[in-house]
Design a protein around this nucleic acid. Structure first.
Lengths: 345, 345
DNA sequence: AAAATTTATGCACACGCTTGCATATATTAT
DNA sequence: ATAATATATGCAAGCGTGTGCATAAATTTT
């Protein structure tokens, strides 16, 4: 059974039309729910369509309507590792929302080096998508601004651009970090604490730091921030080594995310500290192995699935309702208390 | 600056044609490299095209050629958790290969319940993709067979269907498991070992088990398999509890993947065994937190990025070269020795 | 230099769908 | 019953590209 060069012939509007004894335009109107069709032909057409297992050809529909029902998910990837700013949960959530509305998700990862120079994306230039969801703080502002000024509908996720009114979905970084830090300070008394941060230009780093700083300040302590160029495991390890060199008296550390937290814990242990007895740690994200770590990591759960879902929902609303004013959606985080913070359990 | 209902007007063949003083068909021929064009007009057209920043409208091109340069990645998702059979590395690899050839990736997750009943996918029916990469053992055979018989180009990843000649990309499960088990048996002597398996109908479970069984048998021991309905952390935990109830004398366990291995380790410890002193463990996959576990997990690294890359490469070859005979591509695995197996370091 | 050949380009239609406009039919008002 | 209106449907053009066929221009052959 040889492959054809393309997919096997699928039924078209014309096929339905002939079989139902009407014109293709009538079929089109029925299928897209236009008014002014008699009940009799409506049911007939729908019947035939179902029987023939009809589905519209999106290229044709896209050509005619300029609405492809494709939305682009763009993240970035690091050179050195096989990971990027899009987590499976993001895509799962985005796909769930997309499926609900009959949309599809086109994913792409932009190399973080190339990110600096590009000003558009192939999927946009080639009109493969109706709009974009840009995921992560590393998506370049320049790129976003260029796309936005061209009129490309776009919603930002885990990113905050002050320069233009663009839809955003974020989690309550400030509140989450504040709650986590308060908890840290409540478990037992600390004199010196620190926050391990990514680039302060990254929304999540900035907002989480501010939440931490507020809690610490309210407790009469001085906030301490150590800023790193990214937020991966190795960086957390490195950050903690530097921190301990300068401030060996630190007894509580909040990390900007779980990966850096775990790197930091490794460094602390290597330096002879017990965790959480000597130094308490909290992370952020609640990645799926945070509970499997030893000690299980106290962290702030970020609802990635929900964020992906909301981002796509919002984008579709913009696409279908037209010119709605941009909003920023904040999703609540949840403090997950485990053992790295030194709490009883 | 109000949004338009769709993207801002992009240049078309006609625009280039007018500006270059030729007909649209000539432009089309130049841009798709057809022969029989004078050098003068060729450079003129290319110049104008670049100047106007032209990119073809894929809907139009797709309509005319039935080649969309979109490939679908289909995985499945569990009801209970926000994870599925597509890992980020898979998508990264697939996207890398796609980008190389000017293709794009459409991802979708099928609910594992719905998987049982469906016989096609919207993205196929709507002609959004030229072909598919199906990822994971949970993709239903019925679905694949239906699509295949309709002539949809498809390559399987981490799945093996004997019923039809379909391209496959897999890793060397047998060899990897064999090597890991041999290593386990070499570190110190074991009398009773076990393999924690997913459904034996799943390629990876079957092949890995066979690798394990061969090594064990060669060492004069009897293989022991405990089969579970899936391969997640909780299941590994459960499996180990059952195993210890029946065989408290087990001293070496190979798990079908890292997640179950870590669940199993948890259960072993709760039952009072020391790891690796009393029971040695090896996993499979080398997920990114395997090295962060305590003890660091000895495992077999699966090249997911490369598998995604190869799957897409293969699919594109089929799409562009036509009727090539199906092959199965096996990628080598690498034994990563850490501490859970009881090796010195 | 005229005829035969090759080369370069344009015309027009097709791909499958949507939609404004015209028209035929059914409904209501006079 | 006829006119006026509302309802249901078909026709044809258009969306942006690709491509077979015809033709005009350039080249070679006689």
């Amino acid at each position: 059974m040889a492959y054809e060069h393309s997919l096997i012939m699928a039924p078209t509007l014309k096929d339905i039309a002939e079989k139902a004894g009407v014109s293709p335009s009538t079929v089109s109107r029925v299928l897209s729910g236009r008014p002014g069709i008699s009940e009799a032909t409506r049911v007939k057409v729908l019947e035939v369509a179902r029987e023939l297992n009809y589905a519209p050809d999106m290229s044709a529909q896209g050509l005619a309507t300029t609405q492809l029902k494709n939305i682009g998910l763009v993240g970035y990837k690091y050179r050195t590792r096989w990971a990027g700013s899009m987590a499976p949960a993001d895509i799962l959530g985005a796909d769930a929302a997309a499926q609900k509305h009959g949309y599809h998700i086109i994913t792409t990862y932009v190399d973080s080096e190339q990110m600096k120079s590009i000003t558009s994306l192939p999927m946009v230039d080639e009109r493969r998508v109706d709009g974009l969801v840009a995921i992560g703080p590393g998506i370049s502002t320049r790129l976003i601004l260029h796309l936005h000024s061209r009129g490309v509908p776009i919603v930002l996720m885990d990113n905050f651009i002050a320069e233009a009114p663009i839809d955003r979905v974020l989690c309550e970084n400030h509140e989450g970090a504040y709650a986590a830090t308060r908890h840290l300070l409540a478990v037992r008394s600390h004199k010196r604490t620190a926050f391990i941060s990514g680039p302060i230009s990254w929304t999540s780093s900035r907002e989480r730091y501010e939440g931490y700083a507020q809690a610490v300040t309210e407790a009469g302590l001085e906030p301490l921030r150590i800023e790193m160029p990214n937020t991966i495991y190795e960086t957390g390890y490195q950050a903690m080594r530097e921190l301990l060199r300068e401030h060996p008296d630190v007894t509580a550390v909040m990390a900007v995310n779980d990966a850096t937290a775990i790197g930091a814990i490794k460094a602390a242990r290597e330096a002879g500290y017990r965790v959480p007895e000597d130094i308490a740690f909290v992370g952020f994200d609640d990645v799926d192995w945070a509970s499997l770590h030893d000690p299980p990591l106290t962290t702030v759960r970020v609802p990635r699935f929900e964020m992906g879902y909301q981002a796509v929902e919002r984008l579709i609303e913009r696409l279908e309702r037209g010119d709605v004013p941009p909003i920023t959606i904040r999703l609540a985080c949840e403090l997950v208390i485990r053992r790295s913070c030194g709490a009883n359990r």
